[in-house]
Design a protein around this nucleic acid. Structure first.
Length: 424
RNA sequence: GGAGGAGUACCCAAGUUUGGCUGAAGGGGCUCGCCUCGAAAGCGAGUAGGUCGGGGAACCGGCGCAAGGGUUCGAAUCCCUUCUCCUCCGCCA
């Protein structure tokens, strides 16, 4: 959420910056109008309340002294109704302002390139060598089906389309990757291992920025507590510290979290219908940081390196792009996507996304830290990144490590976890 | 599922029986000093509190004691609803 005071003071600049995302944010002028009315009402009603409180205290005093109070009581009736009416008017304005701000995205960082769609995302790094095949490489769904490690038909029977059953060494590969990634981040990169609930409540979804705008993407449980399946570990992880004031000495807080993520993929009905690139359920190792504001950009760089380290260790070719203003996520100021080479697409595909939300989520979730020098509690900055999407890493391994005979070589770094060196 | 108990500021914890002078005692914490090679402990001094509105600031005021409603001139304290945690019983991976 944007800070209303900042919005008040820099309305034009903020609208201009938000408009780089490609949608109009002129409606924010209405928020400022409401805010002006709201503050006017606050001043009036608070004056009345102050008077009312003062009179009440006087009554207490009179009673203690044994003096009559009836005359004073009669005077107070009139103001009560005015106070009630003003409070109600304020409540309406508060709600309207909040509803609008909750649907307003984060301000892109100054450095984010302006663009019209994802084709404008600049490539900032290319790493690793693409495999050279002396045969026609197969897609991961062809390989996986032939090796009987991926089973789409049975998954559809059990659940629906866009699910998969992993079998045999395919299932083990998924599990090996989860362990490999978690170990790397916990042992080498200083993250604390967490295992989080896969079900989250509405407040959590609002705080991290999924709701109210993207409700259609979530799986809602049929339960009167308004619960949802976890769409990304970012949601439960950020909400670990909702409504908390953190000691400065405890920052930065860094969590690594493996979760299974569930998404409706509401806006992607016809895309990536084959294979395991886009499923309703997928596994992901996520990195989350809570940092002091002046640390968030260095922390973003470090997080990107931690994610890249996985691909480097697995010797998978990838590139890093920076998301332009049009492609930038709702809650984020700046995002790097890591894209892995996928031979079947003859292209790079997203395998991870590393973002800084600055104070946007912290403000929604009310997460602050208390500065050691005695300053006011201040919103932390939050970051989150994939480290990495596990299913898409399986795709990359199957396709990049495929052999002419249809078997899959296991990357050296993963052999201790797989305990075999190939999938046959 | 049944029966009890409890939620007070960054943390712990008084206050709830008897509604008012309670922004809410007291600790811890935090800051500084002494001590020490340095630290810890100990001792001494100091500090404040969350949030919103007004103000350049000092400061003034509103809200606020799990959340939401109610009674009252006045609620941490009385009433109602909800949530969470703890204990015991039952059931269960």
């Amino acid at each position: 959420m944007l800070d209303i005071k900042t919005l008040r003071d820099h309305l034009e600049a903020i609208i201009e910056r938000l408009n780089r995302r490609g949608e109009s944010h002129e409606y924010l002028r209405g928020v400022i109008d409401d805010d002006t009315k709201r503050r006017d009402i606050i001043q009036r009603v608070e004056k009345l309340k102050a008077k009312h409180n003062e009179t009440s205290r006087a009554i207490g005093k009179l009673k203690r002294e044994g003096k009559p109070v009836q005359a004073v009581l009669d005077q107070m009736e009139a103001d009560k109704d005015t106070i009630k009416a003003l409070d109600e008017a304020r409540r309406v304005l508060d709600e309207r302002i909040e509803a609008t701000l909750l649907r307003t995205p984060n301000l892109p960082h100054k450095s984010v390139p302006k663009g019209k769609d994802e084709s404008d995302n600049p490539v900032i790094k290319i790493a690793g060598d693409k495999p050279v095949f002396d045969f026609e490489p197969k897609s991961h769904w062809e390989l996986g089906t032939a090796l009987d490690i991926l089973d789409f038909e049975r998954a559809a029977k059990i659940a629906a389309s866009r699910f998969v059953v992993y079998k045999g060494l395919g299932a083990r590969l998924e599990r090996a990757l989860i362990n490999f990634m978690m170990d790397m981040h916990v042992e080498n990169h200083g993250y604390r291992e967490t295992l989080l609930p896969y079900i989250v409540n509405r407040e959590s979804m609002v705080a991290s920025g999924q709701f109210p705008k993207f409700e259609a993407d979530a799986f809602a449980l049929k339960d009167d507590r308004e619960l949802y399946l976890n769409p990304t570990a970012e949601v439960p992880a950020i909400n670990m510290h909702r409504d908390e004031i953190i000691h400065e000495a405890d920052l930065p807080i860094q969590y690594a979290a493996f979760t299974t993520a569930f998404r409706q993929e509401a806006g992607s009905a016809g895309r990536d219908t084959r294979g395991i690139i886009r499923l309703h359920q997928f596994n992901k190792v996520e990195l989350i940081k809570f940092v002091k504001p002046d640390q968030s950009y260095p922390a973003l760089e470090a997080m990107l390196e931690s994610s890249e380290a996985i691909l480097k260790a697995l010797k998978l070719p990838y590139r890093v792009v920076e998301l332009c203003t049009a492609d930038l996520g709702f809650a984020m100021t700046k995002t790097f996507d890591i894209e892995v080479w996928v031979p079947a697409y003859n292209n790079y595909r997203e395998i991870g996304s590393i973002s800084n939300a600055e104070a946007y989520q912290a403000r929604r979730a009310n997460i602050k830290y208390r500065p050691k020098d005695g300053g006011k509690p201040t919103f932390v900055h939050t970051l989150n990144g994939s480290g990495l999407a596990v299913g898409r890493t399986v795709v990359a391994i199957l396709e990049n490590y495929q052999q002419k005979d249809g078997t899959i070589k296991i990357p050296d770094a993963l052999i201790p976890y797989m305990r075999v060196d190939k999938i046959t």
